[in-house]
Write a protein that binds this DNA or RNA. Structure first.
Length: 602
RNA sequence: GGGGGCGUAGCUCAAUUGGUUAGAGUACCGGACUGUCGAUCCGGUGGUUGCGGGUUCGAGCCCCGUCGCCCUCGCCA
């Protein structure tokens, strides 16, 4: 062992080490000068230890210590000393190391920002110097917990006989879905690889290949605009099983989540995860990813609305729309008229509702508010009865086409839950949503598109006639959700060539295109494809939720910005003319602007 | 692609209605100090107000354009 190498980490030392000689390596977190004594806090991944330079012990050494600065990397040799005034905020606070030898392993220029647990620098700056940001304890803790979680998942899946199989990152572009990231081929001019949006087809082919139980912690790429919960490249726990039905996949995932949450986070998940039918979820919560930490469910008041004197309500029902409401317990006091009309009303408007109807229930059961005059006396009592409202409650209603009613009320429900503190941090309510519709309208083309993906098996595939009422066909797709986030989705797949062809055909992919783009999958189904199904779970989102982090970026070592750039390495960037030439690529349009030359950073 | 917010010292922010030499805290440098733990005290260095243009006697502030970051709608089978 080299002379400068550590005998302990900066988190190791306790009072039972007092008197022993140790060597610590680490970064200078802080230093305090007191004339003839100098304190330096030495930090590594494991903790912080105070090391002390004393002038009267060694004047020359003390002088060297005085010249040290933040983020210098040191090796100090010294003797562990019991402190007279311990620091109870630190695990190592009972002791300190009195330095007898110092080696500066690397000096640091004054860093562009201070490495603090609670960051003061902007996220932009921290991302540009992410390697400094990574020194922060909360960032390290997040990454360590992420690693523990993934390790637990791997361990559990391996114990169940799942085989970790790598699938290609350079693959082919497929139609539908998200925009692909493309990689030009040098060898094949004008041809491109695509980075996988998911390993979907490959994992199905693993099943055809007899591998039975596949999993992969897989990187996926989607060239779409970002959000706080979306990155252009992200990680999925991807798995697939043969000879299974929905329950088999759900059970494996449920067990794996329970085990991994326990091992990585010390969180005991309630079991079993509730299972909701898709239509039930949408009807009760307004969307397919309900936050089950609180109630306040949607109530259909269409029947009362239809016979009310409120034109907006009647119109909505008469034109085939819906009127639904939320009863906010105790909301009468918690929400002022301004809160309701401006904040909640504005929110409803942002999600397409033309207005927000509301009423507060008075002590006598009478209503007050925007719709009070249409629900006086018995009508008001009847409305309260349907809504389950008590005096002091706040009632919110949206009247519109059903889709908008659900969307707006889903958001209102979450906003109200936030405001009332019902979305408890540290509470984790997983749930399954089952039986998604097989198809949904594509707003752009007006045609039908797969709600999940085109490899999803329909329920009762041979009994249904797609063309008659495509919107009513159920698929064998399922989502796993938690606290209002979609965390994963999967399905039992089509394993019969004729069914797959039929679905493709219905989606407007003709035989020629099928053969060209999915020929290898369809061919595979000629040679004995087992029934199979699987799921993919978003690791980044799981960790973000489990740690209560505000952004997915907080659990990714080197995340990208909202415009998909890497502020640290300045990706994407321009490339040399020679590289473009080799790839047979010419630039045009905006790409030719001089300012595009240096790429994202210029 | 649309909407909103932000951009001033290394960092975090302030700067009256458009008005004198753009301030504070922190970091950094120097000094004092033998027990601190985001030490304290004294002094100092530090500015293309993101960038370009315009209006004005005068612009950090107003207008136009542009770049970057964040949130969001669309988008994300």
């Amino acid at each position: 062992m080299a002379r400068w190498q550590r005998t302990h980490t900066c988190g190791d030392l306790r009072t039972d080490h007092v008197g022993s000689e140790v060597v610590l390596n680490g970064w200078i977190e802080n230093h305090r000068h007191h004339g003839a004594v100098l304190f330096v806090d030495l930090r590594d991944r494991y903790g912080v230890t105070q090391v002390v330079f004393e002038q009267e012990r060694d004047g020359a050494l003390f002088e060297r210590g005085r010249r040290l600065g933040a983020e210098d990397v040191l090796s100090v040799r010294g003797v562990v000393n019991r402190r007279e005034q311990p620091n109870p905020d630190r695990a190592t606070g009972e002791i300190e190391v009195v330095v007898t030898e110092l080696e500066v392993l690397a000096e640091s220029e004054p860093p562009p920002f201070e490495v603090l647990d609670v960051p003061e620098a902007s996220e932009e700056l921290r991302m540009r110097y992410r390697y400094l940001d990574l020194r922060r304890r909360p960032v390290q803790e997040a990454l360590v917990k992420r690693a523990a979680f993934v390790t637990a998942v791997r361990k559990h899946l391996a114990s169940l006989g799942f085989v970790d199989i790598e699938t290609p990152v350079l693959t082919r572009s497929t139609p539908e879905g998200a925009r692909d990231y493309l990689v030009p081929s040098r060898v094949h001019p004008g041809s491109f690889y695509a980075l996988p949006q998911s390993p979907q087809i490959f994992k199905q082919l693993c099943m055809v290949g007899g591998l039975d139980r596949y999993y992969q912690i897989a990187r996926c790429f989607r060239d779409e605009d970002l959000r706080a919960d979306r990155q252009p490249e992200f990680t999925q726990i991807d798995l697939e099983m043969s000879f299974v039905e929905e329950n088999d996949v759900l059970d494996v995932v449920e067990q794996t989540m329970v085990a991994a949450f326990r091992e990585a986070f010390g969180i005991e998940l309630a079991q079993p995860f509730p299972r909701l039918d898709y239509f039930e979820a949408v009807s009760r919560y307004g969307n397919d990813k309900p936050d089950l930490r609180f109630g306040i469910e949607l109530v259909d008041v269409g029947a009362l609305a239809a016979k009310s004197g409120f034109q907006v309500f009647r119109n909505a029902v008469e034109t085939g729309g819906a009127v639904k409401g939320l009863c906010v317990p105790g909301g009468g006091e918690r929400f002022s008229r301004k809160d309701v009309e401006k904040d909640l009303g504005g929110l409803a408007g942002a999600y397409g509702a033309k207005g927000l109807a509301w009423a507060k229930v008075g002590a006598d059961g009478a209503l007050a508010g925007s719709i009070a005059k249409f629900f006086e006396g018995a009508a008001g009592h009847e409305l309260c009865g349907v809504m389950g409202a008590k005096p002091g409650d706040l009632l919110l209603f949206v009247a519109d086409e059903l889709r908008i009613v659900h969307r707006a009320l889903a958001e209102l429900r979450l906003a109200v839950g936030d405001r009332l503190g019902l979305r408890t941090p540290g509470e984790f309510r997983f749930a399954w949503v089952l039986n998604f519709p097989m198809f949904e309208r594509d707003d752009e083309t007006g045609g039908w598109a797969s709600s999940h993906h085109p490899f999803t098996a329909p329920v009762d595939w041979d009994l249904e006639d797609y063309s008659a009422s495509p919107g009513t066909v159920r698929s064998r797709a399922y989502d796993i959700v938690m606290n209002g986030w979609e965390l994963g989705s999967g399905s039992i797949r089509i394993h019969r060539r004729e069914v797959q062809e039929r679905v493709f055909r219905f989606l407007g992919i003709d035989a020629e295109e099928q053969q060209r783009k999915f020929g290898f999958l369809l061919d595979a189904f000629r040679y004995g494809a087992p029934p199979h199904g699987g799921i993919a779970l978003g690791v980044d989102r799981l960790i973000t939720l489990a740690l209560g982090a505000p952004s997915i970026r907080d659990v990714i070592a080197f995340p990208k910005t909202a415009t998909a750039t890497d502020l640290m390495c300045q990706a994407p960037s321009g490339v040399s003319a020679r590289q473009l030439e080799e790839l047979h690529i010419g630039l045009s349009g905006k790409a030719l602007r001089p300012d595009a030359e240096g790429g994202a950073g210029s």
